[in-house]
Design a binder for these strands. Structure first.
Lengths: 132, 132
DNA sequence: ATAGGTGCAAATGTTTTGCTGTCAA
DNA sequence: TTGACAGCAAAACATTTGCACCTAT
């Protein structure tokens, strides 16, 4: 009880579709711009509201990546992020480490650890070439 | 060249001292309040400026922890963070995993991985007791 | 004497929210 | 019919910045 009955809307559908179809980690503004190509009157407030709904339902995820802005991601399969310290670009890594790390928390009786996020920082290929 | 000569200031000293002497992960506002007990005219802008300087020098670290605010930490020894999904409190973990994870990135020739951050989410002891 | 730091207040920029109208169920 | 959702604009809020003054070096 207390939970609202969720209702369909073109806006939410489109926002979710855009997020599922990119492997980037866009901010609200970018999603807004993309979605307006189909729904020209779409407001930024609606984008934020839907992004928050989708986060709460666990259908998308939200990250800061050391910037001041929230970045959103439609791929919720476990993976890691790499942030280039020079160009700021974000890359997905798919290393087989999350389960191992979680296993190490099993002995911590005081905490029920449910999720783990791993974020790497360093220099990407392009930036290494540019000023070795 | 291009680098400014850093200069001593009571304000920076006090901010850094406060951060070294807590094992919490405070926000700028809290640090400001603490520091004003010694430097009553200290402004919030100065707190932010010094926190940013200290971050750039690598003497402190900055995290978002899924909130809208920046949290600062004076302990830069490698460790992990646990965020309770119910009460939002942040705990330090000292598991021996960072090096292992970094080792797994050595095969990635395209990226020079320099740092790793591990963040856990789940339920803390108190919250588990409160509403099992 | 010079330039880095401070305090103050205004500006910036992202995200949230109140309100009114619309539309899915 | 009704209440969840949209659009719009204003508000909220954390953080940054411009400026005049202060102070470490």
């Amino acid at each position: 009880m207390g939970n609202k009955t969720e209702r369909y809307s073109r806006q939410k559908e489109e926002i979710y579709r855009i997020l599922r179809n990119t492997n980037t980690h866009p901010v609200a503004e970018w999603i807004h711009k993309q979605a307006k190509r189909k729904i020209s009157r779409l407001s930024l407030g609606t984008v934020y509201r839907n992004l928050n709904h989708l986060c709460q339902k666990g259908e998308i995820k939200k990250f800061t990546f050391g910037t001041q802005l929230e970045h959103y991601e439609g791929n919720i399969k476990p993976h890691q992020h790499f942030v280039c310290k020079r160009c700021g670009r974000i890359f997905d890594f798919f290393l087989d480490v999350n389960e191992e790390i979680l296993a190490k928390t099993k002995k911590l009786r005081k905490f029920r650890v449910e999720e783990v996020e791993v974020e790497f920082r360093g220099t990407c290929f392009d930036c290494r070439m540019t000023s070795k």
